[in-house]
Design a protein around this nucleic acid. Sequence first.
DNA 1: ACCTGAACACCGTTCAAGT
DNA 2: ACCTGAACACCGTTCAAGT
Lengths: 205, 205
Amino acid sequence: MARRSDHTREELETLITDTAEQIVSAEGFAALTARRIAKDIGYTPGTLYNIFGSMDGIYLAVNVRTMDKLLEALARPESDAPNTPLEERLRIMAGLYMDFAHENKALWLMLFEYALTGEIDLPVWYQDKVQTLFAPLEDVLTPLFTGKEHSREHKMAARVLWSSVHGICLMRETGKIPLISGETPYAMSDYLIENFIKGLHDRAS
Amino acid sequence: MARRSDHTREELETLITDTAEQIVSAEGFAALTARRIAKDIGYTPGTLYNIFGSMDGIYLAVNVRTMDKLLEALARPESDAPNTPLEERLRIMAGLYMDFAHENKALWLMLFEYALTGEIDLPVWYQDKVQTLFAPLEDVLTPLFTGKEHSREHKMAARVLWSSVHGICLMRETGKIPLISGETPYAMSDYLIENFIKGLHDRAS
DNA sequence: ACCTGAACACCGTTCAAGT
DNA sequence: ACCTGAACACCGTTCAAGT
């Protein structure tokens, strides 16, 4: 047939990403198929391949959006009130992370479900986007690591804390590893932060 | 056709689980299909359904085996030497966990990839098996939580530590969240344990 | 009772053919 | 240049039919 030119290439990109996002939100990552997107937007699967090359391209596009939304959520003013103690800032940030994961469960899970095992390297621009997610956490930790000689430890502390809160969050959202009865992920995260930071302060003094 | 009675039901269970395990180990969870298992064992897909009801049944059978192997790995004598300080025991146990994940990457990932988003409840016997994985860690932590009033905190500390090491391990194995250059997951885990335990001791004193 | 073979309703992906 | 339609090589799952 012919080019319909109902939509420009850019419009199609947006249309496809929007639709994919909606499908995942409503029905989960497993429901996201090329044929389903095509049906929803009134094109054939071939068109998706014209625009994104493969389903991977669509997954990445959706994930980048999710990361942008997450980054926005972590920068919410409530964590920026002046004179807030560092530990409290961390608790708030962890809470914002867990809130986001809970409210955007399917999209958040997709971030990690997708090609969990894939051996193909992620594009550099995607990896860079991932790195930006650590920035808010690193900023909060800055007062603990003054001086260039602590730069590596600073980065490490941010990643260790992030991994930990993430692990707790996974237990909650997947239901795979049952939480102990009566314990919220927020309490667990607070417990972790409290003791980890206490340990860091010991070192400093 | 007919019952071939080449194998008993039990033999088929083992044969299918063995074959599934091998496929995952060698080619990853994504390569594990009903048709592939059937081809490898010389039966048709229908037979798998006679025995396991669905692919889910096969996934669970493989995962239970992986958990058994993990439990065995965590109980290795090296973590049981007498007079080993608690912190050192934790470091060793975290190391054993990360070693296992690395050496059995595909099977370990399958534990969490499988139906990450599935809304269907896992069978109780499976959930019980998952719970047993925390026992070795709880045992090591026992000296810090004497007295019944600390039972909840004891369980919480075990799960928080487990989540954290697990999160670090995920970064390593999936390559999704790049580790900082030059930092091993073992160093990160040690850093976490050191500071978390220091925090816990502060509380005690 | 057990197993097969064929069918059903799907996948991702490719690409010649049309406008 | 863009899009379709059909094809290819797959999926999980079901079940009548055979022995």
